[in-house]
Simulated scan of single mutants.
Amino acid sequence: MPRLLPAALLAAATLAVAATAQMPTEKPGARDAARVSGGTYQADPAHTLVGWRVDHLGFSDYFGLFGDVTGTLTIDPANLSAARVDVSIPINPVVASKGLQEHLLRPGKDGGKPDFFGPGQAPARFVSTSVAPGADGMGAYILGNLTLNGITRPVAIQAQFTGAGAMRGTETVGFSGRALIKRSDFGITNGIPLISDEVELDLSAAFEKKAGASEPQPMPAPAANACNGDKVQPWFGKQATPAVRAEIAAATGAKMIRWLYPDSIVTQDYRAERLNVRMDKGTDVIRSASCG
């Protein structure tokens, strides 16, 4: 056994030296747009993060991270406005303090709606719809649809190119980004206004060009008026009698209609094909209509 110890130490030292020799002596990435080649890149789950921050009671901020992001970036350096990004962001797990993490993923009481995400929340998904490159070619204004908590809303990202190069022979590009959303837009309303409605998002993304990277399936944009809510306007100011309700149902063809008063309690899920007709309480006079 004593003779084996020096040999083992020598072998370990040799492996350590070999591993160190394989590490680059200079950063492989640089903020040089000429290094970016066209094609489809895959998100690097280990190096793509979405940070979030909200104000808590006016004293301090809650913040945390989502990781393990997957998806694709398709880019043509000669036509940056045609770039397209489609990524999925797992909500569970979330990196945060133990108490906050537990609350974010806590199931609803007695099977009800959770305060925030709950344990079974589906991954969020962002799909770009347009890209407006900045004048310097290093930044871009990205518009897209974010689906979170089963609800899809438009979101804008101010993105910056941070670097490109090859790591162990794999072409890699990196970006940072910032966005601001309202969690109430996605049906997450617990604690507002004590916990801020506005959520700051801080993005850091790395994409790698790998053989066989495939284009994602397109995500349809949310239908803005799938319930034909605009067809209710002729009845604005009229009482929602049974006959009027039947006329509205026939005119819109909506399969689901909610007749709502200002204090009506409704579910927070967004359904583009559902018609919401809002009325004055006590008179049933129709004031507005929308999908959702």
Rank of each mutant, 00 (worst) to 15 (best):
residue 189 T to W: 07
residue 177 G to R: 01
residue 4 L to W: 13
residue 107 P to H: 14
residue 51 G to M: 10
residue 200 E to H: 11
residue 207 F to D: 03
residue 165 G to D: 06
residue 34 A to L: 06
residue 198 E to H: 11
residue 278 R to T: 15
residue 98 K to E: 13
residue 89 I to Q: 03
residue 195 I to H: 00
residue 160 Q to N: 10
residue 155 V to E: 04
residue 102 E to T: 10
residue 187 G to A: 04
residue 186 F to D: 12
residue 65 L to F: 12
residue 268 Q to S: 15
residue 170 T to Q: 05
residue 53 R to P: 01
residue 166 A to E: 14
residue 44 D to M: 02
residue 132 A to C: 02
residue 99 G to H: 02
residue 50 V to P: 07
residue 180 L to Y: 04
residue 113 K to T: 15
residue 117 F to I: 00
residue 35 R to P: 06
residue 35 R to F: 09
residue 155 V to N: 04
residue 48 T to P: 01
residue 285 V to N: 11
residue 73 L to T: 05
residue 152 T to R: 14
residue 113 K to P: 03
residue 72 T to Y: 07
residue 119 P to G: 08
residue 189 T to L: 03
residue 184 S to N: 02
residue 26 E to A: 09
residue 225 N to H: 04
residue 33 A to C: 00
residue 45 P to W: 07
residue 46 A to F: 02
residue 41 Y to N: 04
residue 278 R to Q: 14
residue 242 P to F: 00
residue 262 P to Y: 10
residue 187 G to Y: 05
residue 61 D to N: 15
residue 105 L to D: 12
residue 65 L to K: 10
residue 176 S to R: 03
residue 222 P to K: 01
residue 290 S to F: 01
residue 137 G to I: 01
residue 176 S to G: 08
residue 216 P to R: 13
residue 125 R to L: 10
residue 195 I to S: 12
residue 61 D to G: 06
residue 162 T to A: 14
residue 119 P to I: 04
residue 28 P to D: 13
residue 137 G to D: 08
residue 87 V to I: 15
residue 146 L to F: 13
residue 8 A to T: 14
residue 14 T to R: 10
residue 118 G to N: 02
residue 127 V to D: 10
residue 30 A to E: 08
residue 144 G to S: 10
residue 138 M to N: 10
residue 64 G to R: 08
residue 206 A to V: 09
residue 244 V to S: 07
residue 100 L to D: 15
residue 257 I to M: 12
residue 259 W to V: 10
residue 169 G to W: 09
residue 265 I to H: 12
residue 192 I to R: 12
residue 136 D to W: 04
residue 254 A to D: 04
residue 210 K to N: 04
residue 269 D to N: 09
residue 247 E to D: 12
residue 114 P to G: 14
residue 177 G to A: 08
residue 80 L to N: 09
residue 177 G to C: 02
residue 251 A to L: 01
residue 48 T to D: 03
residue 272 A to N: 10
residue 73 L to N: 09
